[in-house]
Deep mutational scan, measured.
Amino acid sequence: CHSECLGNCSQPDDPTKCVACRNFYLDGRCVETCPPPYYHFQDWRCVNFSFCQDLHHKCKNSRRQGCHQYVIHNNKCIPECPSGYTMNSSNLLCTPCLGPCPKVCHLLEGEKTIDSVTSAQELRGCTVINGSLIINIRGGNNLAAELEANLGLIEEISGYLKIRRSYALVSLSFFRKLRLIRGETLEIGNYSFYALDNQNLRQLWDWSKHNLTITQGKLFFHYNPKLCLSEIHKMEEVSGTKGRQERNDIALKTNGDQASCENELLKFSYIRTSFDKILLRWEPYWPPDFRDLLGFMLFYKEAPYQNVTEFDGQDACGSNSWTVVDIDPPLRSNDPKSQNHPGWLMRGLKPWTQYAIFVKTLVTFSDERRTYGAKSDIIYVQTDATNPSVPLDPISVSNSSSQIILKWKPPSDPNGNITHYLVFWERQAEDSELFELDYCLKGLKLPSRTWSPPFESEDSQKHNQSEYEDSAGECCSCPKTDSQILKELEESSFRKTFEDYLHNVVFVPRKT
């Protein structure tokens, strides 16, 4: 048989008469490798580009789960590009990614509803959504962080984005990388972005840091009482949809009607710091009717980097990364020049730590249904340095008659930039024990000054392991946590139920 035959053949030295091919099969003959313009397919066939392209389009058009959109890589027609490569849609070739590779997620039936953290986790790592997304989240724990972890990498949506009755959302900033909504599939009414009845939605994105392009379709905003109209108009300008909307697409009466839409800028007039305090004062603000001013709200939190936005980490279910302080308005003076500047002394802060701070007014709604208010920009203030805590785990070892090696770990709280350490030492008198000992005694162990690591005695271990207080009263049991108490109650309830079950099964009433 021919060298490319495997198993047997019907005619000697003829690659077209093989029972099976050793390498690849091409047009009725066995070959060692697939010549151009053919590609290896499933490690035994040679196919042309049209064959591989037909497989790709067949799966793409069917949208069946589990099928493969075949691509070409290293002269092979394979189910998908290997790690580190992405497909070129024009020629199906796998090309190296520039940075992290995109991950295209194809949605069944063309859309997916995100109504819980669990459903959001199914899209973790996706960068391109081939379909439409509907966000409908009523509640949950730590929602802002969970949504950002699972949806934060999405850069492109081919269909539309719909935010509907998501009472738990305060902001859409968890879509931190969303840059493009194509609108290839539109919501009824030709809408590519749809926001309806979101009672706590206050911000779409921080438009000073976020760009969003909507290729096709219109915007729809109705019944978002805490979303200011200025935020919607800003989205029109940034996304390129200005002029597409009709009169009733953006409701003037049901958007922002319960919001404090600040239209003035508060400026800080005085800032002073110490290692654990920050004193702030800002310019006074009074609405047209000074009785509408209820006070100020001061927001602050630790910020290692200057990239904080107002609604980071917030949701309507209680999660809030900001510390909020309510401040009463100052006494009002008739003389504008003698107006008191409101302020606040922030206490209990960490030394040498940068804080993000902003302040906003708290006002009631005027009778004319106009909203007044003022808010400052987010500023960054760093507390002063102070003395560091003591170095940890000092170790001293003498390696000769004239040297001592000293080692330690950095302090747990540096409280500033540590530039150097101060080492103090003092000579001590020799131990009298060394002169009084009889060095001729056998088995004498000389006193040693070398360091030995501390260890816990058996008594201390027994005390720590004991669940009861000892007789001397030195140790006591740790208080039980809520989960331990709940577990004990469940076990007790189970024992009672099981005992009742045994009584009912074992003891049967005697027939009379």
Rank of each mutant, 00 (worst) to 15 (best):
K103N: 09
V104H: 11
V104M: 06
C105A: 00
L107F: 07
L107E: 04
G110Y: 12
G110W: 03
G110C: 05
T113D: 02
D115K: 13
D115R: 04
S116K: 14
T118V: 05
A120H: 10
E122T: 06
R124I: 13
C126R: 00
S132P: 02
L133F: 04
I135M: 05
I137F: 13
G140D: 04
N142M: 06
N142Y: 03
A144I: 02
L147I: 05
E148P: 08
E148T: 10
N150I: 08
N150L: 03
L153D: 03
E155L: 06
I157V: 14
S158I: 13
G159H: 02
L161K: 00
K162V: 14
R165V: 13
S166F: 07
Y167L: 15
L169C: 15
F174I: 15
R176S: 12
R176Q: 14
E184D: 15
E187I: 10
I188R: 14
I188K: 10
N190E: 07
F193L: 11
Y194G: 11
A195G: 11
L196Q: 15
N198D: 01
N198H: 00
Q199Y: 08
L204I: 10
W205L: 03
W205I: 02
D206M: 05
D206G: 06
W207S: 03
W207L: 05
S208G: 14
K209H: 14
K209M: 10
K209N: 14
N211R: 10
N211Q: 12
L212E: 00
Q216T: 13
G217N: 03
F221C: 15
Y223Q: 11
N224H: 10
K226A: 09
C228Q: 03
I232M: 06
K234F: 08
E237P: 01
T241R: 11
G243F: 09
R244G: 08
N248V: 09
D249V: 11
A251S: 08
L252Q: 12
N255K: 04
G256L: 06
Q258P: 07
A259W: 09
S260V: 09
E264F: 07
L265R: 14
S269D: 12
S274A: 05
K277S: 08
R281C: 15
W282L: 06
E283Y: 10
E283R: 14
Y285F: 05
P288D: 04
P288M: 07
F290K: 03
F290A: 09
R291A: 07
L293Y: 02
L293D: 03
G295W: 10
G295D: 03
G295N: 11
G295P: 11
F296K: 00
M297C: 11
L298A: 02
Y300N: 08
K301C: 02
K301T: 05
E302D: 07
E302G: 15
N307T: 07
N307K: 03
E310T: 11
F311Y: 15
D312Y: 06
A316M: 04
A316S: 07
C317N: 13
G318Q: 03
S321T: 13
W322Y: 09
W322L: 02
T323D: 05
V324M: 10
D326F: 05
D326R: 03
I327A: 05
D328A: 08
P330S: 06
P330G: 05
R332K: 08
S333W: 02
N334W: 06
Q339S: 10
N340A: 07
H341M: 06
W344Q: 10
L345Q: 12
R347V: 12
G348K: 01
L349T: 02
K350V: 06
Q354T: 04
Q354L: 14
A356R: 02
A356S: 08
V359R: 00
T361A: 11
D367L: 10
D367N: 08
R370N: 15
Y372N: 08
G373H: 02
S376P: 02
D377W: 14
Y380V: 05
D384N: 13
A385M: 08
S389V: 05
L392W: 06
S396K: 09
N399Y: 05
N399K: 14
S402D: 10
Q403V: 03
L406S: 02
